[in-house]
């Protein structure tokens, strides 16, 4: 087994983190008196009477932004290994990365010109 012990503290931290909300929810279940009512099951909208259905169709713009974000997120992941060893990799790698970024900038310009980055 490839056990690694460097993250032990992380795992303990994670377990504690997960247990806190679980504990909080279970404690209320035990401690709070159960009082059911029609008011309880309505969705909370800052004290205002909720109107209409909770399921509404959002604008497609959200989707477009998430789409562009995804592509550049993946790009970041690929640039990170290069950035960590920038000094050792030298000029050739730099040129490669410049080409990589240039092609994606073309994509960004495309998204901009086709109106994927506009809100309305």
């Amino acid at each position: 087994m490839f056990l690694s012990h460097q993250y032990d503290s992380f795992w303990i931290f994670l377990l504690v983190c997960i247990s806190i909300p679980l504990l909080a929810f279970s404690i209320t279940r035990f401690a709070a008196p159960p009082r059911e009512g029609p008011e309880k099951s309505t969705s909370y909208e800052s004290g205002i009477e909720p109107k209409g259905d909770t399921w509404i169709r959002f604008q497609i713009r959200y989707y477009m932004f998430a789409l562009v974000f995804t592509v550049f997120d993946v790009e970041t992941v690929f640039l990170y290994p290069w950035a960590t060893s920038f000094e050792e990799l030298g000029l050739f790698a730099f040129v490669e990365v410049i080409v990589f970024i240039f092609i994606l900038i073309v994509g960004l310009v495309y998204a901009w010109r086709k109106g994927a980055l506009e809100w309305c």
Partner: peptide, 28 residues
């Protein structure tokens, strides 16, 4: 991560560049 960087920009540079075109095509 540095090992990954060496591999990515040395041995696997063609798939690396191809990935940028793939991302471009996916975006478009």
């Amino acid at each position: 991560v540095q090992q990954l960087g060496y591999k990515l920009l040395g041995e696997f540079v063609i798939p690396f560049e191809l990935l940028s075109i793939l991302l471009l095509a996916a975006l478009v």
